[in-house]
Design a protein around this nucleic acid. Structure first.
Length: 467
RNA sequence: GGCCACGUGGCGGAGUGGUGACGCAACGGUCUGCAAAACCGUGUACACCGGUUCAAUUCCGGUCGUGGCCUCCA
């Protein structure tokens, strides 16, 4: 079975063959740690987690190296730390911890390496020195700048011919730039800003520009060229374009990564997500209380994967609720199913077609329809789902707290059966036996008010928390 | 203004140059004291206008709409 992936650089779906079968190498741009990650941040994390799992499935767990960086030096971080009156390190540590918790709840495996920018300053300086030596960068007013005209095929990834961009004229022409398109590799720091000894004989301490860290960290952990580089579509220009320029010019290589993969943008209820519009949603908010419910991470994950990763995705309550319902229905059938089979080919084949997760989900539905539950569980597992119902309670925080039942049961205490419910069910059974259906229905109604749904089966009455 | 995506039935969402993927919802049926669940069944969709073609939702051009980038925003 071939694995095909869409490459932004060539704008085509191509067969993927790793440079080294024993070590498939993937780099994904990670978070800038200054605040809770939002639902848009979650998309690449989930998408590339699925790819990571697929690669591990194909090439073996120990033959894939996934690197996702932590950007912990950035002007937004400086500003936020000052605003909150805390140390930069405290802010980045706290934010990183929250991020780790959030993405774990989304069912994402930790990458093999999570390098931090601040721990790779030396590598950045080495790259910068090389670029200056090769004539691809220059020092000006204590800045080091990459000279875009020095790279003849700059702009291939974003398909922006140089002359057009300059004609765009929206570029801020700083006095230290020789060409309007040149971008910063290193800049001087003021007293109150984080700084490190500068390269290239610059006396003032400084800090790196935005793009150089990814070139440095991918080099350190994956080498001069590697297999896959991923991120959001908005990073294509300028971030990834500039990474390519830095790495290729520093190493004199034809490509930085063989495949450039970008996930599409996300909207919320048909509108762009923005703080100013008041529809900004963090992952944490969804997990704790969004639209009156605490949404399980697996439901968020599933909702994300129902749309192909390159398509625009509209995040809505309806869609999320439907996602949860589907999992809830499936997981009911999986309660006593063992996870001992291989993932069915149909699902893996769909994933191998440029990560066609909607097609894979259609195959999941088919397995469900055919009652191939062990296959369903195995397929879910490959895509990062537990298949366990206690992992996906959908709790109404306010209502749950009031009744005391939804929260107790919803919190996953599957072994704990509240006595009150059992008593009511027994009372109802007595009423039914006596054909006192008015009383029987009254009890059903009472339980329904508490959020408990009954099911009469031939083996007796079972119950569950209403979803 | 320049460049680039996307627009599929009530909703979500794949895909394809030629007899309606799939799911949710809805409706009908079986079952049930009533329900729920389960199972069975029911739908002539591809923004608009042109063009190419024996044939277009699928290719080409234009229009409109939504969004992205060009402003260190995933």
């Amino acid at each position: 079975m071939e694995l095909k992936l869409y490459d932004t650089l060539t704008r085509e779906k191509r067969v993927f063959n790793p440079l080294d079968q024993d070590c498939v190498r993937m780099y994904v741009c990670g978070p800038t740690v200054y605040d809770f990650a939002h639902i848009g941040n979650a998309r690449p994390v989930i998408v590339f987690d699925v790819l990571y799992r697929l690669l591990r499935h194909r090439y073996g767990k120990d033959h894939v190296k996934y690197v996702r960086n932590i950007t912990d030096v950035d002007d937004k971080i400086n500003a936020r730390a000052a605003e909150r009156g805390i140390a930069i390190r405290q802010l980045t540590e706290e934010t990183y911890k929250n991020f780790k918790e959030d993405v774990a709840a989304l069912g994402c495996l930790p990458p093999d390496v999570e390098p931090r920018a601040t721990e790779h300053i030396d590598e950045m300086k080495t790259l910068i020195a090389r670029l200056v030596a090769s004539g691809n960068a220059y020092v000006e007013q204590e800045h080091v700048l990459f000279s875009v005209p020095s790279m003849t095929d700059y702009g291939r990834l974003s398909k922006r011919p140089l002359d057009e961009m300059i004609a765009g004229a929206r570029v801020d022409v700083a006095p230290y730039k020789r060409d309007p398109m040149d971008f910063v590799l290193w800049k001087p720091s003021k007293e109150n800003e984080p700084g490190w000894p500068s390269p290239c004989g610059i006396a003032t301490p400084g800090r790196p520009g935005w793009h150089i860290e990814c070139s440095a960290m991918s080099w350190k952990h994956l080498g001069e060229t590697f297999d896959i580089h991923g991120g959001g579509i908005d990073l294509v220009f300028p971030h990834h374009e500039n990474e390519i320029a830095q790495s290729r010019c520093a190493f004199h290589t034809g490509v930085m990564a063989n495949f450039w993969m970008h996930n599409g943008f996300l909207q919320v209820e048909g509108e762009k997500m923005a703080k100013s519009l008041g529809n900004f949603i963090t992952i944490r908010e969804l997990l704790e209380n969004w639209q009156g419910y605490a949404w399980p991470g697996e439901a968020l994950r599933f909702n994300m994967l129902r749309t192909h990763y390159r398509q625009p995705l509209d995040w809505t309550y309806n869609s999320l609720d439907e996602s949860h319902k589907i999992l809830w229905d499936w997981y009911e059938k999986l309660q006593n199913v063992a996870s001992d089979t291989q993932a069915p080919d149909s699902v893996v084949r769909a994933l191998c077609d440029d990560l066609n997760t909607p097609q894979a989900i259609a195959e999941l539905h088919k397995l469900h329809r055919e009652r191939n539950y062990s296959g369903l569980l195995a397929a879910l597992s490959v895509m990062g789902f537990s298949g366990r119902r206690q992992k996906i309670p959908r709790i109404a925080p306010a209502a749950g707290a009031a009744s005391g039942i939804s929260s107790a049961v919803g919190a996953g205490q599957a072994g704990v059966v509240p006595e009150m419910i059992e008593k009511l069910i027994n009372a109802r059974a007595v009423a039914r036996a006596a054909k006192n259906f008015a009383e029987s229905d009254r009890i059903r109604g009472e339980l329904a008010k508490m959020g408990v749904v009954l099911k009469d089966t031939k083996d007796g009455t079972t119950w569950e928390i209403a979803r």
